[in-house]
């Protein structure tokens, strides 16, 4: 086991063992072609921490969390997830992805499979769990997101809110150690936002490590340990939610908050 170098005062007894750090992003840069989309990202997420990432559109916040399960690749710096560094090695990428759940803005449920099949697909084919067991687990998670009665319907028959809850349950079926949320409520009608946020809040209460890109500032206040504000591909400011909202420090943060909190 290798210990990770930690940006802590030298000699201090702050050697953090690998198991406590869920995600560690060090000096990371990313380009889309010639566009410098992520610049000098340093972010350490501890196990059980809930992080909310906010920022204007195009600030690179979605790209950042997509880098964490390597849906996008970075060109400079390092990303460690559960102690595994993300490189071009496919085996390691698959290892990481098994442990990291992701919820997308547009749900991305598989439209040709029933809800239950959506949930059991990965447990059966990735983890090799027997079908009966996988289905029992799937029903358990469907109950948690409060739609067990929809198990045999197809995604197209469900409302947006229900689909997003299924998407969360689908990720949970893989028993991930970390959950990534990429604007999970922005594609939803206003009346459905709450049902999805409720599920996310209950997940947070159970101690799940979560990174959420979202504009739901109420959610951020309620569950986040830290709020990160991004602009122009870089982390501008991070703080605890109370301080972040009541006393933003950076000019850009102030401007952003004034725009979204009327």
């Amino acid at each position: 086991m290798t210990n990770l170098s930690v940006t802590a005062p030298e000699g201090a007894a702050m050697q953090i063992s690998q198991t406590d750090v869920a995600v560690d992003v060090i000096d990371m840069h990313k380009w889309y072609g010639d566009f410098h989309v992520l610049r000098d990202i340093n972010l350490k997420v501890m196990r059980g921490e809930r992080i909310v990432i906010a920022g204007p559109s195009g600030s690179g916040k979605s790209t950042l969390i997509r880098c964490i399960n390597r849906l996008e690749e970075h060109q400079e710096g390092h990303i460690f997830v559960n102690g595994t560094e993300l490189t071009a090695d496919l085996k390691r990428i698959d290892e990481v992805r098994r442990e990291v759940g992701m919820v997308f803005q547009h749900f991305n449920l598989f439209p040709h499979l029933t809800i239950l099949q959506n949930l059991t697909l990965a447990p059966i084919w990735v983890r090799g769990i027997p079908k009966a067991e996988a289905e029992a687990a799937a029903m358990h998670y469907l109950e948690r997101v409060k739609i067990p009665e929809q198990a045999n319907k197809f995604p197209g028959q469900l409302s947006g809110g229900q689909q997003q809850r299924v998407a969360i349950a689908r990720s949970l079926c893989m028993q991930p150690k970390i959950m990534l949320f990429d604007e999970p409520t922005s594609a939803l009608d206003p009346e459905m936002v709450k049902e999805v946020l409720d599920v996310m809040i209950s997940l947070a209460e159970e101690g799940m490590t979560m990174l959420c890109v979202t504009h739901e500032m109420g959610f951020a206040r309620q569950v986040a340990n830290r709020v990160i504000f991004m602009d122009q591909g870089q982390i501008i400011e991070q703080n605890e939610p109370e301080a972040f909202f009541s006393n933003p420090q950076h000019e850009r943060t102030k401007l952003f908050l004034s725009q979204i909190l009327h």
Binding site: W31, G33, D34, F35, H36, R39, D40, K44, M46, Q75, E76, N225, R226, Q232, G233, Q234, I235, I236, E237, Q238, N239, E240, A243, Q249, H250
Partner: peptide, 22 residues
């Protein structure tokens, strides 16, 4: 751990490493 961070100087965009565009 220190949870507060405020960036002082913005990082300017630079060209991607190893990309010459030619």
């Amino acid at each position: 751990m220190d949870n507060v961070y405020i960036r002082q100087d913005l990082v300017d965009a630079r060209p991607a490493p190893g990309r010459t565009g030619g």
